[in-house]
Simulated assay, not measured.
Amino acid sequence: MDEQQLVIQIQKSPPQSEEHQKAIFTLADKILCSCGLFRLSHNKSLYGVYLDIHQALQQQLYRDIAQNIDEYQLKNITVAVWINEVRSRTLKKVINEAYLQQLALELQKYYPPTEEWQYSFQILTNAILLSDKLLHKVNIYHDVYEEAKNELWIWLYQNINTYNPSKGKFTAWLNFRFDMILRDSQTTKNDPFIQKLNGKIIRTKYQLTNIIKSITQEDLILCLNLQIKQVLHYILSVQILSILTVKYLLSQLIIKKPLVADSLLFEIAKQSLPNATKLANIDDEIENIPQPELEQPLSEQLREYLENDPNNLLQKHIRAHPEATFQVIALKRLEGISWKELSETFNIQIPALSNFFQRHLQKIAPEIKRYIQE
């Protein structure tokens, strides 16, 4: 029974009947399966936090379906659209900060590339996306955002074991890094040199597309029927035949699988430009150049100073709040924790927190600068 039939059955059956309850449970399971959160589970039994999330999603879906079964008619939308809305708001409501943090800590129990680690990593990344708690920024190109997400997953793969829950929330830690990646990606996208190079590649790709589309099956047949009398003519004919064959096959690919053809032609255009390979892999080229040891990033140097407090200057605290030291506040701000969250954590008004932080920062700024320079 599909979703449309289940919705009709729920609407028609008495609310307290077994048929009504069973149809709701069945629809909830179908919606939960379609979200793909536990897509690697197959027949594997869920346990721990995975089972907790699965059950919480089931219960929330059951309540949402029972309470809003007539919503699609009131909104004048299709059942499919309504189901997507139900799925989306349930995932956002259930997969909260606490669950994401538990998933991150569960992943830290395993080591790559074991099956358990891959399973946990897949669930964590799926949950992050479905929770809609990943940082969103206006004026970011869609392709830039998607590429930045891929870079974030690579970074998370390599650095998940560095997350420390005692220093802040998981989403704050993750989004702090994602924000840095987005800034770098946007800067690269807006670089005049990169824009000029991309413009040349795109123009070349369109030129190739127009040439390929002009090749017909008749041209290929004509070439096959050429009378070959001399070796030179034979070699030339084979070359022409090869070129025409490739062009014809590409023209068919454009018709049957335009997205695949578009991607392939873009790569051909990129490689056709002078030094395109070196430009396309500029990061790899830079990494292969012998160079002195890279300096530690400024943010990491600052974190090192704040954590170590080499001159014991960071332990000053807000009056009557010994736990709210400058060191603790500064580290949390570095991790992307907002003033509002800090205010709730320490039960201190935002102005008091901010003023204390700014005053003490002015006093120790020269010492921080000296430490980093040395």
Rank of each mutant, 00 (worst) to 15 (best):
E267W: 12
I221C: 00
E267F: 11
V138Q: 15
I215C: 07
I364H: 00
A28Y: 02
Q101V: 06
N96T: 10
V86Q: 07
Q230H: 14
Q373P: 00
D132R: 04
E146P: 00
D143I: 11
I128V: 14
A330W: 07
Q122H: 13
Q101C: 12
K75L: 15
I95N: 03
L361S: 06
D184L: 10
I215G: 01
S131H: 07
K12W: 04
I160G: 01
L294P: 02
E323H: 03
L182R: 02
S185Q: 12
K12D: 13
D29I: 03
K256E: 15
I282V: 05
L353P: 03
I240G: 01
T277M: 08
Y234C: 14
W117D: 15
N68Y: 06
Y305W: 11
F193S: 00
E295N: 14
E304D: 14
I289M: 01
K93C: 12
F193E: 01
G48W: 03
E287N: 10
N225K: 13
T26R: 14
S242R: 12
G199Y: 06
Y163G: 09
S166C: 06
T90V: 15
L6Q: 11
I202S: 03
L40W: 04
Y206R: 07
K229M: 07
W339S: 03
S34C: 00
E300A: 05
I228K: 15
T204E: 12
W153R: 03
Q373V: 09
I372F: 02
Q207T: 11
N68F: 04
E293K: 10
E116W: 06
L129I: 12
S299N: 12
P14H: 10
V79S: 11
P290A: 04
Q301R: 09
I65V: 13
S17N: 08
L57S: 04
L279W: 12
L314I: 08
L244W: 07
E71M: 08
